[in-house]
Write a protein that binds this DNA or RNA. Sequence first.
DNA 1: GAATCGCCAGCATACGTACA
DNA 2: TGTACGTATGCTGGCGATTC
Length: 251
Amino acid sequence: MTRTEWKRKKKEELEAQKKETKAKPIQKINNSFIENVIHDSNVTALKTVWYLSSILEDFDTTKDMVTVTIDLRKMLNYTNLNAQDIRENFKNMQKTSITFINEEEEWEEYITLIPRVEFVWGKKIIHIDIYSKIAKLIIDVKKRYTLLNTSELMKLKKKHSLRLLPILKMIQSNNEETKQKKTYVLDEFNELFGTNYKNLTDIERNILLPAKKELEHHKIQSFKHEINFDNLGKGRPKAISITIEPTVTTS
DNA sequence: GAATCGCCAGCATACGTACA
DNA sequence: TGTACGTATGCTGGCGATTC
């Protein structure tokens, strides 16, 4: 293959890649931090992000990058996690990058979630460098659920409870009484919780009921839910959605 | 090792349709 | 009109994987 042929081939590959990229739901990647970076993560990852959101409030937005010092003892106390899990999680976040894409100006950039992590031996301190862009996204995680007390989250052990609580708070924050309940179809539930259940009964059995039990046990939040059926009176009714309505904790 | 999670296969249920 | 069968869907037990 000649140099010219090679260049032409590369150009074609680049064009094909560009087309393929445009067909994908790019907006989803850069618009919703929590849905993507921690979508399939475990309880440790979720709690780490929530903790970061609580200490990043006053960072200097004029700088491209900020250094955050974490008091490990405070973090351990706040999150109920252990040091080894926190260490592993920061190492994983250090390997993770997210993509920012501007389709109008036709550019994209890849930013590492945490470019540098420094564990200071003996002092129980962790220094992390973090780009302002990323820091803003993490803070946005908290801003999206303004009524949420993040310390409540730390009591929870089930990841589905951790994801459901912010959703309940978000529904509850609607001023209009009629909007204080929300209906989700199967696909939306699977999207929210990162699962692939085939029917809504599984969602109820494996997600809603266990999460409800845990949230009520800690007296954090309660909710009512109702399965909505279609085709009543014509064949076996099909469960099409579940309506969730947050309520005041009673237990 | 126990608990939890995610999923699947087989069974149960509810209704429609064909046929005697 | 009653019965058998077909279809669509939910329910349940259980198993393997993962997490604690």
